[in-house]
Simulated scan of single mutants.
Amino acid sequence: MKTTTGYSGIQISLHWLVAILIVVAWFTGEGGKAAMKVVEKGGTAGFVPHVAIGLAILALVVTRLLLRLGRGTPAAPGEPGSLAVLASDWGHRLIYLLMLAVPLGGLCTYFLGLDVGDLHELGANVLMVVILGHALMALYHQYVLKDGVLSRMMRPE
């Protein structure tokens, strides 16, 4: 993957938009469950915000991933190959994996009728915990280490 000195405006916008949508999707999960019960009984759930948000997340994450692969990202702070840099790299990989897997699980549950709803819910909870860790590490870097990591996701370069 390419390395750049900073994130583009579109990368930053997509980062924050996806972050907000993931939180909203997590809080609207019960609406998705209620809609599934209607569908399981042979009814039509109509517009379900949780499902629409999940589809938007999936589309935006694919876009983010393609931009990340094409444009690159700034190097993680620290010595290349250090434990901190490896943790950052693998943490981002886990976040991307979950940001793809969770909406795909919801899609399989809602549209294909596959019985993976519990796995979808577990994945969503794990994603929230990992994202919380990600946010805490960004704050730690910004305010304790004072290395400007959070600033990189605030203004484009």
Rank of each mutant, 00 (worst) to 15 (best):
F47W: 11
T44P: 10
V149A: 11
R71I: 15
F111I: 04
S88L: 11
A52W: 02
G32Q: 05
H92V: 04
D118S: 15
L139K: 09
L97N: 09
N125Q: 10
L55P: 02
V51W: 01
L139M: 11
F47Y: 10
E40A: 15
S8L: 01
L97Y: 10
D147P: 00
R152A: 05
A45C: 00
W16M: 00
G148Q: 03
Y96Q: 06
T3Y: 12
L66K: 05
A19P: 04
R155K: 14
G46M: 08
G78M: 12
L98S: 07
L14V: 06
S151V: 11
W90Q: 09
K33A: 15
M137R: 14
W16T: 02
L58G: 02
L17C: 14
L150T: 04
A35N: 05
R71Y: 15
L86G: 08
S151G: 12
K33Y: 12
V116G: 05
P80G: 03
G29D: 02
L100S: 02
H134K: 09
L104A: 09
M153D: 03
L107A: 13
S151W: 14
P49L: 04
P156L: 12
G117L: 15
R64G: 04
V39N: 04
S151L: 13
L98P: 01
G148I: 01
V18R: 06
T4C: 00
D147Y: 00
L86I: 13
G123N: 03
A84R: 15
G105M: 12
R68E: 00
L21A: 08
D89C: 11
P49V: 05
A56P: 07
V48C: 05
L114M: 11
C108E: 12
G148R: 03
K33W: 08
L98D: 03
I131Q: 13
V61I: 06
T73I: 15
A56H: 04
H92G: 08
D147Q: 04
A52P: 03
A56L: 13
L17I: 15
T63R: 10
G105F: 02
S88K: 14
M99T: 12
P49K: 01
Y96L: 07
K2I: 12
A56Y: 07
V24W: 06
A135F: 11
Y96N: 10
G46R: 00
V144F: 08
I12K: 01
V149K: 05
A59G: 14
G54N: 00
A138W: 01
S13Q: 10
S88F: 14
F111R: 03
T3C: 10
T5N: 15
K41C: 05
L60Y: 04
K2S: 11
L97H: 03
A135D: 05
E157A: 13
I131A: 15
T28P: 08
L17K: 08
I95H: 06
P74Q: 13
L65W: 08
G113P: 00
A135Y: 04
D89K: 15
L14P: 08
G42Q: 02
K146C: 04
A135P: 06
A25N: 15
T5C: 10
A135G: 01
Y110M: 03
A138N: 06
A19E: 01
L119T: 11
G72W: 00
V18Q: 09
Q142A: 09
T73W: 09
A124T: 11
